[in-house]
Nucleic acid binder design. Structure first.
Lengths: 344, 344
DNA sequence: CGATTCCATGGAATCGATTACACAGTTTTC
DNA sequence: GAAAACTGTGTAATCGATTCCATGGAATCG
């Protein structure tokens, strides 16, 4: 096994373990002689410092944790990648945890991270099902423990926690304006779960975009999904049988869009002809689709970077302002004039 | 801060820290009285054991690490998800690391995990560029350290390390047979980088499938990519200008396929009409494509589970046999008869 | 030149848990 | 009924690093 400790290194280098430690952690008060000797010996013996012992004493781990709600959602894996790269550049490791859109798994991961004494946490938070704005018990303990914490993508509004979010209001206004221009007035919305702040933000941005374009908001055209593919499929079926037969639809995230598009394909619905589709999240599948799906996208790379930067500020004792990124609307061939408009 | 230690708990419960520890870690030699008292006090104080101190003494962390080569590749995020769920069921945490198809990042993650003394490692290994079969320096140290190690998806053939891989020979034979039936004889292969064993396996399986179907293997129709989208795009352009104008192509992974399909779409190539396409990895984008792409897919969920099981055996001192899963070929509309066959 | 500051170093305490060992009291065994 | 085995507990050692403190020697200062 790897039984080589700092004492072995110190012994072989003819110094005390204190000096060895100082050399290995770059403490200035060391002589050139011992610096060289210790470094050489450590390399030769293949010394790997025990991170547990180190951080037990020093109370820092150079590690942050990132909790996302679904690893298999490309949206979040992009975020994870950005956070990891940025943290890496700052000399910190990132532990990536997966909440699976489930409060219990979220809490287990948070407990594990608290127990491992990570230096900070970046969390895509999940509210409780009963009370979306209240943090889960473990989240409350995290907050109480004083561990630096930053929310990203989603927030819990009642908490005074720095957050990095995206605003889709502008993008949705553009999107709805475009639909209106094409003759659409009956527009459905396949939304996400209320316990996610992004779901609420997207829904209310949709409503205000409708209003801003002088279109009426019809609650009967709102479907409550859960951000997962199956609920998107359910939403698509619901829409197929809907008495109002809307001519356009906005979908709140990529997995739901994929579920819905699969159903529509099987039902022989021609996207862009019979139904205009706009989805959140610009992922490969949206671009590969025929026709390509119009999207409202966030700059996950920037958001990930900003989250790490904000977390570093929190760790330094500051409290950075909440930061809001602006989403972008990209029109693609999934939009077309309504039959009525074409026929006119 | 969270300054509540086991001593605080012991004091408040009126027992020694030894007894408190025994209660909290489920040691049998405890009285019902102290069990209740300690448990109650621990809960009330919100005691979170310090994982560093615990594993420093006990030399176990109940944590495994999973190193994948690209978090943003859905293929690997499926694998990560499966490993995580299985490890979770076995009471272990999983640290997910991203090598980014880069030997240096791989080594940094491995060093961090070694230093954190994880109980075991599941690795999608990356060989050296110069010598694909040789493990990187850090990998050698992992092996030398005796840390339980299992390879998944890829292997390093010279090492006696348990591995979970997939064999695509059968699936490719089926695939090529189907292509032949449709009249294709000139079939290109967009392959992966030689330092990945999967790339070599897929390439040689392709060659033998060609041979098994009595088709000649033409090295001029083999393109060497790197498993990333840009190289797939490069491969697609290379193919467009190729003097032999092959009528079908097999692509070695999903990101490359996405890169290639994007180029072909821009070039106005009609997939399934002018060019038949088969890709490895059944990801959403392949199914959303018009027409849907025929795929050769692996059962990542089973492979992930098998990897955790194998790792547990290694941790128990056994040395499980290498396990090979069989890939599956699914024909879709991206395959069509050649013009010649149609014209005849 | 004596006093002060600075440097590099070693000894020992420390972080917070687990666990070997000792011990007292109880139960079982022959 | 004495010896052996078992139970629950506390004391103290331990894991492997970092870091406080003391120390001796060199450099600096007035």
């Amino acid at each position: 096994m790897n039984a080589v400790t700092i004492k072995d290194v110190a012994l072989a280098a003819g110094v005390s373990s204190a000096t060895a430690s100082r050399v290995l952690s770059g403490h200035p008060a060391t002589s050139a002689a011992s610096r060289e000797k210790v470094a050489a010996v450590a390399k030769e013996l293949g010394f790997v410092p025990n991170a547990q012992a180190r951080s037990l004493r020093s109370t820092k781990t150079d590690t942050i944790a990132l909790l996302i709600s679904d690893v298999r959602n490309p949206y979040f894996s992009d975020l994870a990648h950005a956070v990891e790269q940025q943290a890496h550049a700052a000399g910190m490791m990132t532990f990536i945890g997966n909440a699976n859109e489930d409060t219990e798994q979220q809490d287990q991961f948070l407990a594990a991270m608290l127990s491992r004494r990570v230096d900070g946490l970046i969390v895509v938070p999940q509210g409780l099902d009963e009370d979306a704005d209240r943090p889960s018990p473990m989240m409350q303990r995290i907050i109480a423990s004083g561990t630096p914490l930053v929310f990203v993508d989603r927030t819990l509004p009642e908490q005074r926690i720095p957050s990095i979010t995206a605003s889709s209001t502008g993008a949705l206004e553009e999107a709805i304006a475009q639909l209106k221009l094409l003759g659409h007035t009956s527009i459905a919305f396949l939304g996400g779960p209320d316990h996610a702040s992004t779901a609420r933000e997207r829904h209310s941005a949709f409503d205000s975009a409708m209003a801003a374009n002088g279109l009426s908001i019809n609650p009967a055209l709102h479907f409550a999904g859960d951000f997962r593919a199956a609920s998107g499929a359910g939403g698509a079926r619901w829409l197929l049988e809907h008495e109002l037969q809307p001519t356009a639809v906005v979908i709140a995230d990529a997995p739901m869009a994929i579920g819905a598009l699969t159903v529509w394909r099987e039902a022989g619905i021609r996207i862009g002809k019979q139904l205009s589709v706009i989805s959140f999240d610009e992922v490969d599948a949206m671009l590969m689709h025929d026709p390509p799906i119009s999207t409202i996208s966030h700059d996950l790379t920037s958001m990930g970077r900003a989250a790490v930067t904000a977390l570093q500020e929190v760790m330094a004792g500051k409290s950075p302002e909440p930061q809001e990124f602006i989403s972008r609307f990209t029109a693609r061939e999934s939009l077309a004039p309504t039959q009525a408009a074409t026929g006119a």
